[in-house]
Every structure is written in C-alpha cells, then in structure tokens.
Simulated assay, not measured.
Amino acid sequence: MTEVRYDWTKEEIAEIYHTPLLDLVYRAATVHRENKDYAEVQISSLISIKTGGCSEDCAYCPQAARYNTGVDVHAMMPKDEVIAAAEKAKAGGASRLCMGAAWREVRDNRDFDKVIDMVKAVNSLDMEVCCTLGMLTESQAQRLADAGLYAYNHNLDTSEEDYKRIITTRTYDDRLNTLKNVRKAKITVCSGGIVGLGETVEDRISMLKTLSNLPKHPESVPINALVPIAGTPLADQPRVPIWDMVRMIATARIIMPRSIVRLSAGRTEMSTVEQAFCFMAGASSIFAGEKLLTTPNPSFDTDMAMFELLGLTPRKAFKNGRPNEVKEMETAG
C-alpha cells in the first residue's frame, strides 16, 4: 500500500509532473491499482438549484452577474424538481448528486432552509449528497452535516499566487477557511482546480501542493478543463491539451493516492480514447448527465457505452460509510 504523505514539496511534485508521459501514466496507474479498485468509477450528477446572478467575479464563470453570457437568472429550484432530477440521475447510474447554487456565500435565510430540506430528501433516496454553495461558516457546515450532507465542493481553482488574476471578490484564505469548516463538521471534502485559465505549470504544481499538504487530503479532487464561455474574461482561452489533463490527473493520483480524482468539466471535447488515458492515469470519478450547472456534458447513455467498452463499473453509494461515519482514507477501500 502506498504511503500517504502530507509534506510534498513543489520540487518533488514538479519532478513527478514532468516525468516522461508514458512513465508518468504507468506510475500513476500502478499507484491506482495499489490503493483502489481501478476499474470502479464513481458517477456523480450535478444540478444547478439556483442559477445566475452571482456577485462574484470569477473570470471563468457564466453565472457572474457582471458578465453578459446569456445565462438567465433562476430562483431556487422547487424541491420536487430536485428529487425528480436525483431519481433520474440514480436511474442513469449516478451514486452521488451535487447541488450547486450561484451564491458568494451561504446566508442563514429561507433559501438555506430549503437547501437543508433538499439534502434530507436526496439523502433518503440512498444517494450521496454533495453541495457547492460558496463560502460556509462553521455553524452552517454543521447544519448541513446534521441534514445528512456527505460532501461539500469548494475548489481552489488555481494557485494562491495566481488567484487574484482569476477572482478579486474573495481571497485564497476564504477558500481554505471554508474547507476547514467543512472538515470540522465531519463532511467529506471535494476540492480541486481548473486547468486552462492561462495559469503556468508552476501554478498547477503550487495548487496541487496546497491540496496535498492539507491536514487530510480531499476525499474527492476534481480536475476541470476550462470550458470557455462567451462573455466571460476567459472566453478566448485555447482548449487545454489533453496531455496537460493527463499529467494533472496522474500527478494528483500519485501524491494523493487514496483520493477520488474526478475527471470533471471539459469531457464533451474529449474523445473516448482521450478519456481512456485519463482513467489509465488514475481518474476514478466523472460527472454524468447532459449539463454541469450551465455547460454541456456527455449523456448517461454515452458514458455507459464508454464504461462497457473500457470495462469500468459504477461505484456504489456510501462505499466508505454513511455521512459522519466515513472511514479514514488511510484505511478506505
């Protein structure tokens, strides 16, 4: 079993990242086989429960109120629609439902009460429930935990050094404080980043260092390829080379051997062969369903055909225990 470390240096991570590609994929695949069922992939579905009108200025996001991206602002989705979406996702093979709201931070109001009710309802369907709602206080995290929330997504996006170029309306420490609050409430952490923002390789390595040096590695590490959206400041960014994604996934797999590394946004631009390389490199989760919040995504049927071709099987919900009973990753299967 691979040793889990929390003291990776930038130099060590850079050496891994720059390993000749086939050697890197082989090493990552070896680590993957030592620590997890490499043919098992978690399928998550992501829905937007409150769309658009966000006060943040994230340079990649079509939901920021200050950008004209054609995204209509929608109020909170009714609970029955959320349950219907969850049931459809479960029927398609998903074991986790992630609910996203375009908020800067959670506020203690009626909308948050509605989210709590949604968490309870989806949890009762025997699905893992994840939320991404912006910044979170310790007491708010505890309310979500008490409702049965399994995971909370709060991505670092890029390195601390690069962060102000992408977002000015909050700080990197704001991000890390939310992750601390999620941990205190014993909710599992989902945190990764985006490749293709115009960041340097050094920024990617710095972000991976931050994630791998947390007191406990995130249980889920999403690696997103930027989907450039017209109207955002990053609309003209070139598509990320697939090999950059493979390097990021492989490096994350090696330095965080027991985390689930999620091949996230950008899959619609990838061929089956390119996605197969990502699975070889250690990806063990995907988002499925037609949309990721507001951007296109492959359909469940397309993904199931790919799973059959590659010999992959969907991971069952709660494999590492129920909410607040999640086994330590050091002993997780």
Rank of each mutant, 00 (worst) to 15 (best):
R33Y: 09
E15I: 10
G148P: 04
L176Y: 04
Q63N: 08
D108N: 15
L144T: 05
E87H: 03
T51E: 08
E40C: 14
P257Q: 07
L197K: 01
A141I: 13
D162M: 08
S259F: 01
P241T: 10
E161T: 15
R258K: 14
L133T: 09
V129A: 03
L24G: 02
T30K: 12
T210H: 06
A101K: 10
I242N: 15
V326T: 13
A151N: 14
T232Q: 03
D117K: 12
V119C: 06
R239S: 10
E56C: 05
K291V: 13
K120P: 02
N181V: 07
I260C: 05
E12K: 05
G148T: 12
P296Q: 03
R33F: 00
A59Y: 13
Y150V: 02
P241N: 09
R107F: 12
L22C: 02
T137A: 00
I223K: 05
L97K: 13
Y26K: 10
C130S: 12
R5A: 00
S124H: 12
Q140A: 10
L176H: 00
E274P: 03
V119P: 04
V261Q: 11
S206T: 10
N297T: 08
A64Q: 05
E11I: 04
H74C: 10
H18P: 01
T19A: 04
C278A: 15
K50C: 13
N213E: 15
A151E: 15
T30G: 06
D173F: 09
G321Q: 03
D301W: 07
G231A: 08
M135G: 04
A59W: 13
C130G: 02
T210S: 13
M76G: 07
L208Y: 12
I242M: 14
S285C: 06
D157P: 00
M1S: 14
A230G: 08
I83C: 07
N68V: 14
T200D: 02
N155W: 02
D113S: 05
F277S: 01
A39D: 15
Q275E: 14
T232E: 05
A317V: 01
G53L: 02
S284Q: 09
M306F: 15
S124V: 11
N35E: 15
L156R: 05
F279G: 02
D301I: 06
T137V: 03
R315C: 07
Q142Y: 01
R96I: 01
I260F: 05
Q42W: 02
R183H: 02
W8N: 11
Q237I: 11
M127T: 09
A281F: 04
A86I: 06
